[in-house]
Amino acid sequence: MSTAEVVLAILRARPAHGYDVKRDHDDWFPDARPLAYGQVYATLARLERDGLAEVVETRIDGGPERTVYAVTDAGRARVRDWLSEPAPAGSAGADEIVRKAVAALRTGGDAAGFLQGQRLAHLRRMRELTDVGPGADPAARLARDHLVAHLDADLRWLDLAVARVAAADGASAKGQPTTTQEAAR
């Protein structure tokens, strides 16, 4: 994820100090990895250095000093440009399952077992994500919908992979050479 642009978008919604930026980020993307404080402050410093955000206030509310940042015109333009550009098609998120499945097949490992286990892990995660009931905040559901759609795409691939491996095993049982069989030699 483009952390700098997301932080700018948060600042565009309202001026905020580091703590609020982290909290807003984690609210916006409840299923993503929480933003680390170190990353928030490093990003804010970089955005300020690049003229995309600026310090508008330094607050001391009885606690530690808090620096409030706001987006600059250049920052607003960056957010606008970022939103107008499509993200690269395709996701690297599924690479690990593809790597494992191919490695299992190539090495004569239990590809079918791996695929079944992965399928179950995906379905269980999808169940957690979809078990929200009606009336949930639509904005909060958008990020979750995206994750569900990706899980669904992975699941379709897993279903296809299970069928392919089963077909290959069937061919293997009939004496026809298959990738699995060749690899196992």
């Binding site: 379905l123 999808m126 979809t130 078990d131 899980l151 669904d152």
Partner: peptide, 22 residues
């Protein structure tokens, strides 16, 4: 799969037999 994920349990069939129950 999105519909299946609403269930407590999945029973998966292949060629007329239960392949997995999860």
């Amino acid at each position: 799969n999105v519909v299946a994920a609403r269930a407590d349990r999945e029973v998966r069939l292949r060629d007329g037999v239960i392949e997995t129950e999860s």
